[in-house]
C-alpha cells in the first residue's frame, strides 16, 4: 500500500492544524495552520513516499489538531499522540493512533473507524460547540480512558472505551451505543433519550435510571453478530441487568450491565 509518510523536522513550537492532510491527497505544496499563521507542510514535516490510499504520521504530538478531520476513505496511521478534533466529521476510512488523543476526538463522526490505543480527552464522539448532534455513525475504539462527557449527544454508531469514562459520559445521548469497560465517574447518561450504554457496573449512572432487573436479550446477540467490537465487549454474555433511563427524558434509553468475561 503506497502513500505519504510524514516525519516532523523538529519539535513543534505551537499547535498545528492538519485539516486537509489526508490519504489520497497530494501533499506537495500544501499549506497548514501553525499557530496563528499558515506554513508549508514541508516546512514542518519531511514528506516521504508518494500519494496513495495510506498516510503515515510518524512521531505524533499532542499539538497536532484535526488529524484526519473530514476523512472519507483510505487509511491514516499515527505513531504517537495527536491533539484535539481527531477524525472530526470523518465519514469513512480508518484512523489508527498508537498514542493518546485530545478533546473532541471523533466529534460528529458519521462513518469509518477510529482506533486510539491510549486515552482521549473530553467530549469523545460528542457534538461540537453550538451543534445539536454528536457522532452519528462509524466505530470508535479507545484502548485507555475517556475524558469528561464522552458520547455527549451521540446520535448513532458505536463507541467502545476499554478504560474508565470521566464524569458526564453519555450526557443527553440521543441514540447509538457506548460501551465502557472500566468505571463511570458519575452522572453518566443524564438526559439520555434513547440508545444503549454497555457497562460493567451501574455505579456512576445518573439518578434517573430505573432497575428493570436481569434479562437474556436477543438484541445483544444481534449486536454481537453485527459488531465485532461489541462482540468482544460482550464476550458471549447476553444475560444482563437492564436499567432504563433517563426516566426524566422519556426513559427509552438503557444501561445494560454486562458481566465481565
Amino acid at each position: 500500500m503506497s502513500g505519504f509518510v510524514l516525519t516532523p523536522r523538529r519539535a513543534f513550537e505551537t499547535r498545528v492544524d492538519l485539516a486537509g492532510v489526508l490519504p489520497g491527497v497530494d501533499l506537495s505544496g500544501l499549506t497548514v495552520g501553525y499557530g496563528d499563521r499558515g506554513v508549508a507542510l514541508a516546512e514542518l514535516f519531511e514528506i516521504g513516499g508518494s500519494v496513495g490510499d495510506r498516510l503515515t504520521l510518524k512521531s505524533g504530538s499532542a499539538l497536532l489538531d484535526r488529524v484526519g478531520a473530514g476523512l472519507s476513505s483510505g487509511e491514516l496511521v499515527v505513531e504517537g499522540d495527536v491533539g484535539d478534533h481527531l477524525g472530526q466529521s470523518a465519514a469513512g476510512g480508518s484512523i489508527t493512533v498508537s498514542g493518546s488523543a485530545g478533546a473532541y476526538a471523533a466529534a460528529e463522526l458519521s462513518g469509518g473507524r477510529i482506533e486510539i490505543a491510549g486515552d482521549v480527552g473530553e467530549r469523545l464522539g460528542a457534538a461540537r460547540d453550538g451543534s445539536r448532534r454528536g457522532m452519528s455513525g462509524g466505530v470508535v475504539v479507545v484502548g485507555g480512558s475517556a475524558g469528561p462527557r464522552a458520547a455527549e449527544r451521540l446520535r448513532g454508531g458505536v463507541i467502545v472505551v476499554k478504560g474508565d469514562a470521566a464524569e458526564g459520559a453519555a450526557t443527553d445521548l440521543i441514540a447509538g451505543t457506548l460501551a465502557v469497560g472500566g468505571a463511570l465517574k458519575g452522572k453518566a447518561g443524564r438526559g439520555m433519550k434513547r440508545g444503549t450504554l454497555l457497562l460493567r457496573s451501574a455505579d456512576g449512572l445518573a439518578p434517573g435510571f430505573g432497575d428493570a432487573l436481569e434479562h437474556d436479550l436477543v438484541m445483544l446477540r444481534v449486536l454481537a453478530r453485527r459488531s465485532p467490537d461489541l462482540a468482544a465487549f460482550l464476550g458471549g454474555a447476553f444475560k444482563v441487568r437492564r436499567f432504563a433511563g433517563d426516566l426524566n427524558a422519556g426513559g427509552k434509553g438503557e444501561a445494560l450491565v454486562v458481566p465481565a468475561a
Partner: peptide, 22 residues
C-alpha cells in the same frame, strides 16, 4: 418499542410478555 441501528441496518425491539420480539 425501541429501534437500534447497527451496521447500517435498523432493528426493532418490541416488548412482549415473554421479553422482547426482535
Amino acid at each position: 418499542q425501541i429501534a437500534k441501528n447497527v451496521d447500517g441496518r435498523r432493528i426493532w425491539r418490541v416488548p412482549v410478555m415473554e421479553g422482547e420480539f426482535v
